[in-house]
């Protein structure tokens, strides 16, 4: 947790009182990651693997063959909100890390401003609120035993989006060098991503958008057995293309540059 506290002391220029209360707010969001049962963090890692399966089944298969489908390589990323990956060496340059964090807080505030359809009935609104409080309320489980989570919060979804953006950037190298389990873990553990900050944030926001507004999130919760199996690299590209195309055609009024996503970010050529 000191990884989460130090940048705050930096922001507040050593004012421990302000840093403390900011830390309290952050822990409201993230405390479940520190449960002894580790159910919440394990669920996020499971969902990350599913996200890889949906968007890049060839790499998902490779991870499975190499005993890395537990996605433990993303454990520290999520626990520390990518702090170590966006710090350079031992310097106190927190700026990039804070840019990443800023994007996380934006997503969190999204929870509060999510527009509700004007035609939604009171019942629907009540149901939505109940659903919300079931999956992302910080107070839920306060006194009870931690239960296995079933749905990801917006912040968690965004952290997975950023994880996936990083994975997509590294996957070609891992496949071409035929890394084994240990090498995969080590590679992801020692990444320094400062130079790629903007590119990664852009990709992460695109993935998040796809998850939230174009049916990506629902795919995470559907049964794996319903999925097509892919055998060749060609199949993989076709399916990936189809997947994105169908998402575009069904997408509603999304003012998002899907051409960018299709041309450069989601499809491997």
């Amino acid at each position: 947790m000191s990884d989460l506290a130090t940048p705050l002391l930096y922001i507040w220029d050593g004012d421990t009182m302000k840093a403390f209360w900011t830390f309290v707010q952050i822990m409201k969001l993230l405390k479940k990651n520190f449960e002894m049962s580790q159910n919440t963090i394990s669920f996020q890692l499971q969902m990350l693997y599913k996200l890889i399966q949906i968007t890049d089944s060839k790499f998902a298969e490779y991870l499975k063959e190499n005993d890395s489908h537990n996605c433990y390589f993303a454990f520290r990323w999520i626990i520390c909100l990518f702090k170590r990956e966006f710090m350079k060496g031992k310097t106190d340059d927190y700026d990039d890390c804070l840019t990443v964090w800023e994007s996380v807080w934006c997503i969190n505030s999204f929870d509060n401003i999510e527009p509700e359809s004007e035609t939604a009935t009171t019942n629907e609104r009540v149901r939505k609120n109940i659903e919300k409080s079931n999956c992302s309320s910080p107070n839920h489980e306060e006194y009870g035993r931690p239960s296995t989570p079933k749905k990801l919060s917006n912040v968690e979804l965004y952290l997975l989006s950023l994880s996936l953006a990083i994975i997509r950037k590294e996957r070609d190298l891992i496949l071409s060098k035929k890394f084994d389990a240990c090498e995969i873990l080590k590679h992801f553990n020692t990444l320094h991503l400062k130079e790629n900050l903007n590119e990664l944030l852009l990709n992460a926001s695109q993935i998040w958008h796809w998850l939230k507004f174009d049916g990506g999130e629902e795919k995470l919760y559907t049964d794996e057995s319903e999925k097509k199996s892919i055998t060749t690299e060609e199949d993989f590209e076709i399916l990936n293309n189809d997947c994105i195309k169908s998402d575009i055609s069904t997408s509603r009024d999304v003012s998002f540059e899907w051409s960018d996503v299709c041309s450069s970010n989601f499809v491997f050529n």
């Binding site: 454990f75 520390c80 170590r84 240990c182 553990n189």
Partner: peptide
């Protein structure tokens, strides 16, 4: 030293 999280090699 940074606290080890997960595993290092």
């Amino acid at each position: 030293h940074d606290l080890t999280i997960g595993v290092e090699f």
